[in-house]
Design a protein around this nucleic acid. Structure first.
Length: 437
RNA sequence: GCCGCCGUAACGUAGCCUGGUUAGCGUACAGGCCUGUGGAGCCUGGAGGCCGGGUUCAAAUCCCGGCGGCGGCCCCA
């Protein structure tokens, strides 16, 4: 059988070679650092969940792209397409009685059957922060802060935060008795900037023209000057309490966020909705210059825990696209250089018992020094050549002379100087140079 | 799901238009010159036309289909 055509990873999925993984780790470490600083506890759930659980509230677009399959017993399962559903599952089951608020973090892989393109893969990584139990703007502000801190940590200095509150439009439509499914369709069409179709959707519901033109008016409100946009929006929504509350909430959040983090550009866009159906309040996405794809996205989902059968639990959160952040760093030359090579190349010359070399390597490693032993039986000259091309700072050579005297020869590969020393001396020398660099 | 460009060793490429030597080169890899001393150089070696079909005496080259990569739309992370 010819396996050649199967040697490449499946479409939209990638192999991460050391360099790729290094870049990913940079982002992951920044996320874990924020878990710690913001007191989020990391959790992990299975990649595979029951289809029903995942499909419950994710929205048409995501449902269409789920990897769904049956197990041998006929159960319908799926690979998780996003992280909120599994988190909410935990919160409504094992963490049901955990003290609120709950701060949970994750770094998982996700799967969507999309057409791959720039920054979009069928298997991708997200780092998520979920804050459950609070309905207050300070919770949303915390999520926004985390997103902003992540961008800053990764040296992605010039970025935009686009935000809205789905309560503005939903509030209006609910007050007129518009069916929730229709609301979902309207929001999703608006999100696609397909305002014409969105309006048609509403016209089909026998809403009066005045109401429809209100919605159309909201769609258009977008820009940097949030004060005037909010004022305009308020005059449109009139006495609709839910919408007013959403607008006020946005105002509070924007006032404070601008004060705390003046750097990002905040774009208020009331026609922006996001594809996931579970959002109930503030929503946002983060963009960086030179790359027109959302790097981080999130929002408030106050009804989801209830939907899963738990106690009513307001919640908010965000997910950072790890592969996309890696890409953003590349595009903006923000990828940090990998750390210097701090290793020792150990060469055991002919005639020396291997045990002598292995004892020395064991001792070095016990002291935290990485050692690579020559295992190809190369000539010394070839070995040193390889070690130098790989940028090893030190070579340790063990010949009969050294073995008999219980010593080692340490060669500095940069200066070319070498000395025969006791293991202790060599170790100290290596260690101090590694600590210095 | 739609659209565009593109598929030659691990990587970068030449040849393709105008079908015809053993598919060439560079890097990388392995070895030798050089088994107690490296980075250079020289030499040697392994490794390749995405898959399937068609046209033809003959296909990397021309045609069709599939698959894949990159990018765009849409959506999202």
């Amino acid at each position: 059988m010819n396996l050649k055509s199967f040697l490449k990873p499946y479409r939209g999925m990638r192999d991460y070679l050391p360099k790729d993984l290094y870049e990913r780790r940079v982002v992951e470490e920044a996320i874990r650092e924020l878990f710690k600083l913001y007191c989020y506890e990391e959790v992990e759930t299975p990649t595979v969940e029951y289809y029903e659980l995942l499909a419950a509230k994710v929205g048409e677009e995501t449902r269409r792209t789920m990897y769904v399959f049956k197990d041998l017993a006929g159960r319908t399962l799926a690979l998780r397409p996003e992280g909120t559903a599994p988190i909410v599952r935990l919160v409504t089951s094992k963490l049901k009685t955990a003290p609120k608020p709950l701060r949970l973090g994750y770094i998982w892989d996700f799967y969507r059957y999309d057409e791959p393109q720039r920054g979009r893969y069928r298997r991708f990584y997200q780092g998520g922060f979920e804050l459950l139990g609070s309905s207050k703007p300070e919770a949303d502000m915390e999520i926004l802060s985390i997103s902003i801190e992540l961008m800053k940590k990764l040296k992605l200095e010039k970025f935009q935060v686009k935000l809205s509150d789905v309560g503005v439009l939903r509030g209006l439509m609910s007050s007129w008795g518009v069916d929730e499914n229709v609301q979902n369709r309207v929001l999703s069409l608006a999100d696609k900037k397909n305002y014409v179709e969105a309006i048609k959707e509403l016209e089909a519901t026998n809403l009066d023209e005045a109401s429809i033109s209100k919605i159309a008016g909201i769609f258009k409100l977008k820009g940097l000057n949030y004060k005037s946009i909010l004022a305009e929006a308020k005059s449109i929504v009139g006495s609709c309490e839910h919408s007013i509350r959403s607008l006020e909430n946005l105002e509070v959040i924007l006032d404070y966020m601008r004060e705390i983090y003046p750097e990002p550009e905040y774009i208020l866009d009331l026609g922006f909705a996001r594809g996931l159906e579970y959002y109930t309040g503030m929503i946002f996405e983060v963009f960086v210059e030179n790359l027109d794809i959302a790097l981080i996205g999130g929002g408030r989902y106050d009804k989801l825990v209830e939907l899963y059968g738990g106690e009513p639990t307001p919640a908010t959160g965000c997910a950072a696209g790890i592969d996309r952040l890696v890409l953003a760093m590349r595009v903006n030359n923000a990828t940090p250089p990998p750390p210097p090579n701090r290793r020792v190349y150990l060469y055991i010359l002919d005639g020396v018992p291997l045990s002598y070399g292995f004892k020395i390597s064991t001792e070095l490693r016990a002291n935290g020094i990485p050692v690579e032993i020559e295992v190809m039986d190369r000539s010394l000259s070839k070995g040193l050549s390889t070690a130098s091309r790989k940028n090893y700072p030190y070579a340790l050579m063990l010949g009969l002379k050294e073995a008999e005297a219980g010593l080692v020869t340490l060669k500095n590969m940069f200066t070319g100087l070498q000395e025969t020393l006791t293991l202790r001396e060599a170790l100290n020398r290596i260690r101090s140079s590694f600590n210095a660099s």
